[in-house]
Design a protein around this nucleic acid. Structure first.
Lengths: 267, 267
DNA sequence: CCGTGTTGTTCGGATATGCGAACCTCGTTC
DNA sequence: GAACGAGGTTCGCATATCCGAACAACACGG
């Protein structure tokens, strides 16, 4: 195969982003629609969906119909907006019925939040970024908008650093999209700097986000191991002014305890 | 239409069931795969999925790859089984984040279960059947397998009767698949009988399943109205031996109270 | 009542997807 | 180690899907 540079498995695509390889187009569309709808709390019109998934409405029309007919998406006739449907909601339910681990994780996270009074988050690596999959809010006044289901880059999140701390350097470099996005002045500038930080994470067992994602907010993270490799990242988020020495010790202790619990569950 | 026996909109299909009309095939496949995986707690092999969705593996392969690449399904390399993935779980989460009503419904249902000590269920109409969307278990020893996400016919469920009690007779008849499935001796025999029951439901405000679905189990249901029509059905399930006169009064009171709460929420 | 901006549908040619069977790669069994 | 079965991939041809633009339906504002 690969008979020349003109080889292109999906000829018609415009190839704006390089991310698509040998994906099944229709399937990707369905999933992209789900994702777009999940991120839009008020629902989306067809035109908006077209923009999000980068497809003409003529193509999306039959897909949306099928999804609506089966209640996987809901269609509001008065507002002309599509949103996540009941069946989709139930799909998710069936997941945490089966996968008891998620429930046990949540229990461990509640313990952490109880112990240190701060928000606790759980994330995994998803295509080079941190995907947040669970959160237990601190009892303190709410701040951070809930980011469950959203992703952030690995290079300015404690969970991200924890997740990749033991991976091969090349693999990690491949995940970094240079130039590195820098939401604050404290954000790491270069891949080399980032790689250096990972050595410290390995040494200490904890990963830090020192106001690198958001001003005046810090995180402490730890990696959760399963079958030999770090699969999950657990973190505690706190405003800097509350992060005294004692508090930091408390948080680390709570995280370590949760790590032990979770790793026992993961067998 | 029906210009001849050779008319067939999707030529390649074998057309075992008559249910497909102008659905987008690929989309339906994706959704069917989701549904199959959701119903299989231990995951499915590719061959099993092929049977479930009635498609050759050559066709499903690219679809499953795409779904797995994006974490919407999980693939266990050692057991060779596919199951619902993290992203799908998060889709569901995003639903109850938006739709606050589901959470408020759950609160009302917990109140019902607290008040009468029995299992409370919530369902909607989905393509002529009752789709169970939420449940609060009674504190009593567990029995009924959880049926969230599953469907049952309308003709032997209290929720089903409540849901269709105010609909046009023809529409209701269209939902009944004759001959009527009869899981117990008490199950209604004919469409006419069923239609007659609905008049009673309208009169009394409550729908009953008197051991029509399962021996020795009864349900009392009530319809929840939104924008003028009954959109949800709420029910309490209890073993017959526990259903005394007093208990029945208690249940009806709890259901009525929940109905008021829920309808206020629905605006 | 006509522009203008929506949402959504239709249609024919271009092209990706689907089917089915043969093939591959492992384990297992005898 | 040959035969077998299960999970998965590949490939050519038949065919369903996609694109894009034009069209239809409706709402809103002047």
């Amino acid at each position: 195969m690969a008979s020349g540079p003109d080889f292109c498995p999906k000829g018609a695509q415009i190839m704006t982003t390089v991310e698509d390889k040998t994906q099944h187009r229709s399937t990707k569309r369905v999933l992209d629609i789900f994702e777009a709808l999940a991120n839009a709390s008020e629902g989306l019109t067809m035109a908006e969906i077209c923009r999000e998934v980068n497809a003409p409405k003529g193509s999306l029309s039959p897909i949306l119909h099928t999804m609506a007919d089966t209640s996987y998406v809901a269609y509001d006739d008065t507002t002309k907006r599509y949103s996540i449907g009941l069946k989709t909601y139930l799909l998710g339910k069936s997941f945490d019925r089966e996968s008891t681990s998620i429930n046990l994780f949540m229990a461990a996270m509640r313990d952490v939040t109880n112990a240190c009074g701060e928000t606790c988050q759980l994330g995994v690596l998803d295509r080079g970024r941190v995907l947040y999959i669970a959160k237990v809010d601190s009892p303190q006044p709410v701040r951070l908008t809930s980011s469950i289901g959203k992703t952030l880059p690995i290079h300015y999140t404690a969970i991200g650093k924890a997740l990749v701390s033991e991976m091969d350097e090349e693999k990690v470099r491949a995940m970094l999209q240079e130039p590195l996005e820098r939401p604050t002045d404290a954000t790491v500038r270069t891949a080399d700097e980032f790689i250096a930080q990972l050595a410290e994470v390995r040494n200490e067992g904890f990963a830090y986000d020192r106001e690198e994602a958001t001003e005046a907010i810090q995180c402490i993270g730890i990696g959760i191991r399963s079958h030999g490799t770090i699969q999950y990242g657990l973190s505690v988020t706190t405003p800097s002014y509350r992060l005294t020495e004692d508090k930091q010790a408390l948080i680390k202790e709570a995280l370590s305890r949760a790590k032990r619990h979770m790793e026992r569950v993961l067998a």
